[in-house]
Structures are given as structure tokens and as C-alpha cells.
Amino acid sequence: MITLNHYLFVSGALFALGLAGVVVRRNIIIIFMCLEMMLSAANLALVGFSRFRVTDGLPDYAAHSLVFFTITVAAAEVAVGLAVIVALYRTRQSVEVDTITRMQG
């Protein structure tokens, strides 16, 4: 049977995948996608926990609200983030992490 732990494992694995992507990939846009993946993984854990915390016959909608806010914030973050990335691309003609290493030390 499918238990809460199954969901939590999927959430954890997706989070780990996102983290690995952030470390491995060098394309800033893909790194950014991986960050969205991590955020979604966290959302899955939240929804899972809330579904299994049944009070008076209903799941905990407070956690659902947090998920709602997270998604909204993520959307705003993506918009601003992509704008920054585009601005960077215009000056550098590249979205590789290796090119943003002017400051060292």
C-alpha cells in the first residue's frame, strides 16, 4: 500500500535530483530549472504532510496555503530571475556559470 513515506521519499529524491542538477550543470537557466524542481519537491512534502494530518475530517489547509504562496513566489522569482539572466546574456552572450568568475579571492 502507498503510505505517506512513499510520497516523502519521492519528494526527497526529487529534491536530491534538483540539488545534484544545481551542482552538476553549468547552464544558468538549467540550474534555475533545477531550483524550481527543489521547490516543487518541498511542496510535495508539504502537501503530503497536510493530507495525513486530518483534523475533523479535512486535511490541514494551512499547509496548502503555504504551498499556494510558494508557487506564487516561485513564479515571481522565475520572472525576475530570467530577466536578470537575459540581461547578463546581453552583455556576455553566454549563460555558462564559468563566465561569471570575474571576481575572485
Binding site: 527543489m38 522569482e77 561569471i100
Partner: peptide, 29 residues
């Protein structure tokens, strides 16, 4: 330098947001 800083702050900021929400989820759980 400012754009570079902006991208770095963006990536790590978004990363920390993800980590934070994951932590909130488990504390809540």
C-alpha cells in the same frame, strides 16, 4: 560586476528558498 553579483545572489537565494521550504515542510510534518 553587478549583473554577475545579481545572478549569483539569484541562484543561491533561490536555492536557499528551496531548502527553507523543504525544512519548513519537515518541521511541520
Amino acid at each position: 560586476l553587478a549583473l554577475e553579483a545579481g545572478v549569483k545572489y539569484l541562484i543561491l537565494g533561490a536555492l536557499s528558498t528551496g531548502v527553507l521550504v523543504f525544512g519548513v515542510a519537515w518541521v511541520y510534518g
